[in-house]
Amino acid sequence: MIVAERKSFEQIVDMLSPFERVLVVGCGTCVAVCMAGGEKEVELLAAELRMHAQKQGKTLLVDEVTVTRQCDKEYLEPLAKYIDQYDAVLSMACGAGVQFLAERYDDKLILPGLDTRFIGVAQAPGQWEQRCVACAECILDQTGGICPMTRCAKNLLNGPCGGTNHGKCEVDAGKDCAWTLIYRKLEKLGRLDLMRKIQPPKDYSVATKPARYVHPAFHESQQTSAAE
């Protein structure tokens, strides 16, 4: 899932300072699971904003709504009936959600409440780790299911650098050396031959931004609809 982190309260207050009526829109999917922008976090932030405004003696109306997902058009639609009454909308979704909301309501100022961090997994309650950089060409078959593109700071493809240190990374001693992990895993699987193979340079052309993908089943339907 996509892991995000709430922006600092100071930053959010700063962004909202010119406005008196604000709608905070939560997202009930990834960022709800990582406790950054779900229904609960929206409620918490809205309460904070109200209390802060109250203490400053400012008028600030903060309304809350959380939708299932901000990255699907159908869930953004219901906001249309009341979005007009707000000066600004604070989206508590990942960067994709913020943008999609801004596209749907293009005459509204949509502000980001989160910093989007990475695609990752829940390692422990309240703790997430990056596992994928969406490089568009998965090589996990070669590396025992451990991604060097993500978990090696230098995204090396042919083995550890000289900074590998007792199984930890030179860049951050709190993190594992991806290539030590890969070595141990492949050794366990009896597939060290995979590690001995020289990996060619990565093809970055497949990950050219902005990426777009159409599901094969929909190629045809597009043609059909064009024919109609």
Binding site: A46, L61, D63, E64, V65, T66, Y75, K81, Q85
Partner: peptide, 17 residues
């Protein structure tokens, strides 16, 4: 009640739209 897609307002002065 907590549910998706429902607008919530905690302002005693203004009614929820």
């Amino acid at each position: 009640p907590a549910s998706f897609g429902v607008l919530k307002r905690h302002d005693p002065q203004e009614p929820t739209p």
